[in-house]
C-alpha cells in the first residue's frame, strides 16, 4: 500500500508540471505581461516607462519560456515560467500581482468555502439517498414515475434559477433569512442556511437519480432476492442490504470530491457575497492576476490528485476484495 501511494505521488509531479505549463501558456496567450501591467496600473495616464518598471519589479520582464540571452540551464531557469512555477511545488504561493500574500488569502477564504461546502455535502448526501431510497421502495408505481419526472425537471433547471428564486422567495418575500452576506463564527449560520438549502435542492435532481440507479441495480441482485425469500421486510432489505452494498460507489464518489470542497463554488459565492475561494479565483481571472490564478489551479490540481488517491484507498477499505498493488 505504502509503495503504491509513493508511486502515485511521484506520478503526480509530471502531471502538476504539465498542468502548470498549460495554465501558463493559456494565460499568456490571452494576457501579455504588458496587459497585466496596464490592468494593475489603471487605464488613465499609463506610460510605457511605468509598464516597464511594473514588469521589472515583478519579474515579468523576462522571456516567457526560453531565454536566448542566457547560457546553459539558465536559458530555461531565467524565465517567467521557471521563476513563477518552481516555488509552487514547495507550496510557497508568494504574493499576488497586487502585492497580497496569497497563502494568507487562501487560508482566510477557505473557511467560508468550507462553511458552505461541508453542509451541502452532508445534507445533499442525506437528501439524495433518502429520495433515491423512497423511489426504489415505490419502484414501478406512480410515485416512482412522478419522482423521476420531477428529478429530471430539477436537474434541467439552471443553478442560477434556484439561486435567484431562492433569494426572491425566502429572502425577499418571506423575509426569513438575509438575501446575501456573510459573517464570522456562529453568526455565519443565518447567511449559509439559504445557499446550503439551494445547493442541496439543486443537486437533488442529478444526485437522487444517480443513487436511484445504483440502488435499483443492487435491488435486482440475487442476494436481495434471497433476503426477501427469507421473509425480511422491505425496509430491512433496503436499509440493511441494498443501502450497505450500494454505498461503495457512493462513498468512493464522495471521497474524490472531499479535497475539492476547499475550492468553493463560483456562482453560489458570487451571488450570496460569500468570501470564499471560488470568488477569489474568479476575481483573479477578471483582474488578470496570474499569480493567484496559477496558485489556485495548482492547488486545485493537487487536491484533485489527492482525491483520486483517497478514492483508491477507500476502495480497499470498503470492499475487501479490492487490493492495490
Amino acid at each position: 500500500m505504502l509503495a503504491y501511494i509513493v508511486r502515485r505521488l511521484l506520478y503526480a509531479v509530471p502531471i502538476l508540471i504539465g498542468i502548470n505549463l498549460i495554465t501558463f501558456v493559456l494565460f499568456f496567450v490571452v494576457n501579455t505581461p504588458d496587459d497585466m501591467a496596464r490592468m494593475h496600473l489603471g487605464m488613465k495616464h499609463v506610460t510605457p516607462e511605468a509598464i516597464a518598471e511594473w514588469k521589472a519589479a515583478r519579474g515579468y520582464d523576462k522571456p516567457l519560456l526560453y531565454n536566448e540571452a542566457r547560457d546553459g540551464l539558465q536559458r530555461f531557469t531565467d524565465t517567467i515560467f521557471f521563476e513563477k512555477s518552481v516555488r509552487l511545488f514547495a507550496f510557497q504561493f508568494g504574493r499576488s500581482d497586487a502585492g497580497r500574500d496569497i497563502g494568507y488569502d487562501i487560508y482566510q477564504r477557505m473557511w467560508p468555502s468550507l462553511a458552505i461546502a461541508v453542509p451541502v455535502l452532508v445534507f445533499g448526501l442525506l437528501a439524495n439517498i433518502t429520495a433515491a431510497l423512497l423511489l426504489v421502495f415505490f419502484r414501478a408505481t406512480y410515485v416512482d414515475t412522478l419522482g423521476v419526472v420531477l428529478l429530471v425537471i430539477m436537474m434541467s433547471v439552471s443553478s442560477l434559477f434556484y439561486i435567484i428564486a431562492g433569494q426572491y422567495v425566502i429572502g425577499k418575500l418571506l423575509h426569513l433569512v438575509p438575501i446575501s452576506g456573510y459573517d464570522g463564527g456562529w453568526n455565519a449560520l443565518k447567511f449559509i442556511v439559504l445557499p446550503v438549502c439551494i445547493a442541496v435542492l439543486y443537486g437533488l435532481g442529478s444526485g437522487a437519480r444517480w443513487y436511484r440507479t445504483l440502488f435499483l441495480e443492487e435491488a435486482g441482485k440475487d442476494y436481495v432476492r434471497t433476503a426477501r425469500a427469507k421473509g425480511l421486510s422491505e425496509r430491512v432489505v433496503l436499509f440493511r442490504h441494498v443501502l450497505r452494498n450500494a454505498l461503495i460507489p457512493i462513498l468512493t464518489g464522495v471521497v474524490v470530491i472531499l479535497p475539492l470542497l476547499f475550492m468553493g463554488s463560483l456562482v453560489l459565492e458570487s451571488f450570496f457575497g460569500i468570501p470564499g475561494l471560488g470568488s477569489y479565483t474568479i476575481d483573479a481571472i477578471r483582474a488578470q492576476d496570474f499569480a493567484i490564478v496559477r496558485a489556485m489551479v495548482f492547488l486545485g490540481s493537487v487536491l484533485y490528485i489527492l482525491g483520486l488517491l483517497l478514492t483508491d484507498i477507500s476502495y480497499t477499505l470498503v470492499d475487501p476484495r479490492v487490493r492495490i498493488s
Binding site: 435567484i164 433569494q167 425577499k172 438575501i179 446575501s180 451571488f271 450570496f272 457575497g273 468570501p275 470568488s279
Partner: peptide, 18 residues
C-alpha cells in the same frame, strides 16, 4: 461597506432597508 457583487441581491436589500 459590505461586499455585494451582484445587482439583484443589492437591489432587494436596498428595498428591505439594509
Amino acid at each position: 461597506f459590505s461586499l455585494e457583487k451582484e445587482d439583484i441581491p443589492y437591489w432587494n436589500k436596498f428595498l428591505q432597508g439594509y
